[in-house]
């Protein structure tokens, strides 16, 4: 029993050593740095940030990276008030935010927004015009778009959502969303709501899509991250890191690392496409 334990730990040790040797190259800029990076804001960013932080902190234990959520709005406020070093947002900053706090933005990934329905829904494709009519309430039954004869159940996101913003701008052309639409507070809640309701329609980050919901082909283009990055699927947004003024050397190195090819596998792993 003990022998096995020793063998396993030896193997693990070797594994970690190999890993750190392999990862050494892109991380070399962290070699002589120390200190803490505080990160807060957009929740879509967190998995990528965590992977990067783990790699950096393993390479150089003198660096601490703390990551919190809160949403895009919280990210802006915290970085603006100087409470954190990096505030993440799933949307571009507003003019008011940039001028008030003097923020700088660093995009690193592309995330498409897909229109989703229940997997059993016979509707597989819609035109942008049909989606606009559905969300504004002009079309209220599925049979108007070659579906069942049931009522359409509309789901939208909260006003703070970066996902809502890009959907509203690029699909709805800033058109109105019916007041009776149910509002859900996160991508996860959107998936739960639509996955349960055969008459539901909503929209969410492609990174969150799985088998429990079906993405709708929009104007003949399937909603995939590849199509979003190539520009064929136009409903996409960038994920940003933001700093107040110029970053410190440590924060600068972190941002450079996230934007470097070394971080691309991490970004892909979590369903986004890195911006080259």
């Amino acid at each position: 029993m003990r022998k096995i334990a020793i063998a396993v730990s030896a193997l693990l040790l070797m594994f970690f050593m190999i890993c750190s040797v392999q990862a050494a190259d892109p991380l070399v800029s962290f070699a002589h740095l120390k200190g803490t990076i505080e990160i807060a804001g957009g929740t879509a960013h967190i998995p990528v940030m965590k992977d990067a932080a783990r790699a950096i902190m393993t390479y150089n234990p003198n660096i601490r990276i703390n990551i919190a959520g809160g949403g895009s709005g919280v990210g802006v406020q915290k970085v603006g008030e100087g409470l954190v070093d990096i505030g993440n947002t799933g949307r571009a900053l507003s003019e008011a935010e940039i001028s008030r706090y003097g923020l700088k933005s660093y995009p690193f990934a592309m995330d498409g927004v897909a229109v989703i329905v229940h997997p059993s829904n016979p509707v597989t494709q819609l035109s942008a015009e049909q989606v606009r009519q559905i969300f504004s309430g002009q079309i209220s039954k599925w049979d108007a778009v070659k579906g069942t004869s049931d009522d359409i159940h509309l789901f939208t996101r909260d006003e703070a959502s970066g996902t809502r913003e890009v959907f509203w701008k690029k699909v709805l052309n800033k058109g109105s969303i019916a007041t009776r639409a149910d509002v859900v507070p996160s991508n996860g809640a959107m998936k739960t709501a639509v996955a349960q309701d055969k008459d539901a329609i909503g929209y969410m980050s492609i990174g969150y899509v799985d088998d429990s919901v079906k993405t709708v082909v929009l104007d003949g283009v399937p909603a995939t991250q590849e199509n979003a990055l190539s520009g064929k699927y136009p409903v996409a947004r960038k994920l940003y890191m933001n700093t107040k003024g110029d970053p410190t050397p440590l924060v600068k190195a972190f941002i450079a690392y996230i934007q470097s090819p070394a971080a691309e596998p991490m970004i892909r792993k979590h369903g986004f496409d890195p911006i080259k």
């Binding site: 709005g73 603006g80 703070a160 509002v183």
Partner: peptide, 29 residues
């Protein structure tokens, strides 16, 4: 969470507390 005046018990509504939770993360300006 639909911000509307409900016409029946089966209509979607939004409360003040839910409103705070939903809007807290918007552009602070």
């Amino acid at each position: 969470n639909a911000a509307q005046i409900p016409a029946s018990f089966l209509d979607s509504i939004r409360t003040l507390s839910a409103h705070v939770a939903l809007v807290l993360a918007t552009d602070s300006q």
